[in-house]
Amino acid sequence: MQNSHSGVNQLGGVFVNGRPLPDSTRQKIVELAHSGARPCDISRILQVSNGCVSKILGRYYETGSIRPRAIGGSKPRVATPEVVSKIAQYKRECPSIFAWEIRDRLLSEGVCTNDNIPSVSSINRVLRNLASEKQQMGADGMYDKLRMLNGQTGSWGTRPGWYPGTSVPGQPTQDGCQQQEGGGENTNSISSNGEDSDEAQMRLQLKRKLQRNRTSFTQEQIEALEKEFERTHYPDVFARERLAAKIDLPEARIQVWFSNRRAKWRREEKLRNQRRQASNTPSHIPISSSFSTSVYQPIPQPTTPVSSFTSGSMLGRTDTALTNTYSALPPMPSFTMANNLPMQPPVPSQTSSYSCMLPTSPSVNGRSYDTYTPPHMQTHMNSQPMGTSGTTSTGLISPGVSVPVQVPGSEPDMSQYWPRLQ
Rank of each mutant, 00 (worst) to 15 (best):
Q2H: 12
N3C: 09
S4Y: 12
V8D: 03
N9P: 04
N9G: 01
Q10E: 06
Q10P: 03
Q10A: 13
G12A: 01
G12N: 02
G13V: 01
G13E: 02
F15Y: 13
V16A: 09
V16I: 11
V16L: 14
N17T: 09
N17E: 00
N17L: 15
G18I: 01
G18V: 00
G18P: 03
R19D: 03
R19Y: 07
R19Q: 04
R19W: 05
P20W: 03
L21E: 02
L21F: 02
D23N: 12
R26W: 01
Q27D: 05
Q27V: 12
K28I: 05
I29N: 02
V30F: 03
L32N: 02
L32P: 00
L32T: 02
L32R: 02
A33M: 11
S35F: 11
S35C: 13
A37M: 13
R38G: 01
R38S: 05
R38F: 03
P39V: 15
P39Q: 15
I42D: 02
S43H: 02
S43Y: 01
R44A: 06
L46V: 09
L46T: 08
L46H: 00
V48G: 00
S49K: 00
N50K: 14
K55E: 02
K55G: 05
I56D: 02
L57I: 07
G58F: 03
R59C: 00
Y60V: 00
Y60C: 00
T63M: 03
T63S: 06
G64C: 00
S65F: 04
S65D: 09
I66A: 02
R67V: 08
R67K: 13
P68G: 01
A70E: 06
I71H: 15
G72K: 06
K75G: 03
K75S: 04
P76V: 08
R77V: 04
V78E: 00
V78S: 01
A79Y: 02
A79F: 03
T80S: 05
T80A: 03
P81K: 11
P81D: 07
E82I: 14
V83G: 02
V84L: 04
V84A: 05
S85I: 08
S85A: 11
S85R: 12
K86W: 07
K86C: 15
Q89Y: 11
Q89G: 13
Y90W: 09
K91P: 01
R92D: 14
R92N: 10
E93M: 10
S96V: 11
S96Y: 10
I97R: 15
W100F: 07
W100G: 06
W100C: 07
E101Y: 07
I102T: 04
I102A: 01
R103I: 06
D104H: 09
R105T: 10
R105G: 11
L107Y: 14
S108D: 12
S108Y: 10
S108P: 06
E109Y: 09
G110P: 07
V111Y: 09
C112S: 09
T113M: 11
T113N: 10
T113G: 14
N114T: 13
D115T: 15
N116R: 15
P118H: 00
P118W: 01
P118Y: 01
V120S: 03
V120F: 03
I123V: 15
V126I: 15
V126D: 03
L127N: 15
A131W: 08
A131V: 10
S132Y: 10
M137Q: 14
G138P: 11
D140Y: 12
D140R: 12
G141D: 15
G141W: 10
K145N: 11
K145Y: 14
K145D: 13
R147Y: 10
M148A: 15
M148G: 12
N150L: 10
